[in-house]
């Protein structure tokens, strides 16, 4: 099979499983913001198979603890969120940047366009970042975010979630997603979560309660493992 045939075959495969699709009308604002034409598969080029790398200069230790940036304690249920970042071959992705942001315990973001009439917490900003370690593992300490209303449909509420942004080793592996909590009663009406139509794939977005990560008299643990799609040009040190 030629490279072109391989690429076309793989384009067909991906076209049928693009999930979430761009257009999901239940999520109203996808209607005018979704590409309507088929994606084009470019030849695998080095611009996409490489990406920025990260070092200790990118993060401070306190960036991974979202609860310590005020003059007092952040309000809410303190939690530890951790997991391992792997590529689609199961290899840990180390020293990669993980950025998170979230609402506070009352469901309010420190953001000028968030008009939800819930209190801000002067001791909680809700943004953090860290690098994965040599085993691809990351850990954040934060506050469990509250659900919040939005205007997509009547009486619409977002399930509690933490936004995640990851780079992986290459432009191809970039991922922006949201982590949810087990048993959230709001899943049944959320078109963002349900925009992932494959139910078993959608369930990958739900963290699991992890008692082994729970710290006595301090914080509850949740585990959220992440798998990045896309290839990277494997650096020498990784082979």
């Amino acid at each position: 099979m030629t490279d072109l045939e391989k690429a076309q075959q793989s384009a067909d495969r991906v076209a049928t499983v693009l999930d979430p699709a761009y257009l999901f009308p239940d999520y109203t604002s996808t209607v005018l913001r979704s590409p309507s034409k088929a994606l084009v598969m470019p030849p695998a080029g080095l611009s996409e198979l490489t990406g920025p790398t990260f070092g200790s200069g990118d993060v401070r230790d306190t960036d991974a603890d979202l609860t310590v940036h005020g003059s007092g304690e952040a309000i809410g249920e303190r939690i530890i969120v951790h997991g391992t970042v792997r590529d689609s071959y199961g290899k840990p992705v180390r020293n990669t940047l993980v950025e998170v942001w979230q609402a506070n315990a009352a469901g309010r973001y420190i953001h000028k366009v968030d008009q939800h009439p819930a209190p801000l917490d002067p001791n909680f900003v809700g943004a953090g970042r860290c690098l994965t370690d040599e085993q691809g593992h990351y850990t954040f300490t934060t506050i469990k975010p509250g659900p919040y209303p939005w205007r997509n449909h009547t009486n619409a509420w977002r399930p509690a979630h933490i936004h995640f942004s990851l780079f992986g080793r290459a432009f191809t592996q970039r991922l922006v997603t949201q982590m949810y909590f087990p048993g959230d009663p709001l899943f049944f009406q959320d078109p963002i979560f349900n925009g992932v139509r494959d139910e078993a794939a959608r369930k990958r977005l739900i963290s699991s309660y992890d008692h082994s990560a729970t710290r006595p008299e301090w914080a509850l643990g949740y585990r959220f493992d992440i798998v990045l799609g896309g290839a990277a040009r494997t650096p020498m040190e990784e082979s």
């Binding site: 979430p20 998170v100 973001y109 943004a127 936004h163 991922l175 922006v176 925009g195 794939a201």
Partner: peptide, 17 residues
């Protein structure tokens, strides 16, 4: 199921992060 973590929207509130 096993597999790649799906995407979700970046949403409206990323600006401070």
């Amino acid at each position: 199921s096993e597999g790649v973590t799906p995407w979700q929207t970046v949403g409206p509130y990323f600006h401070y992060a």
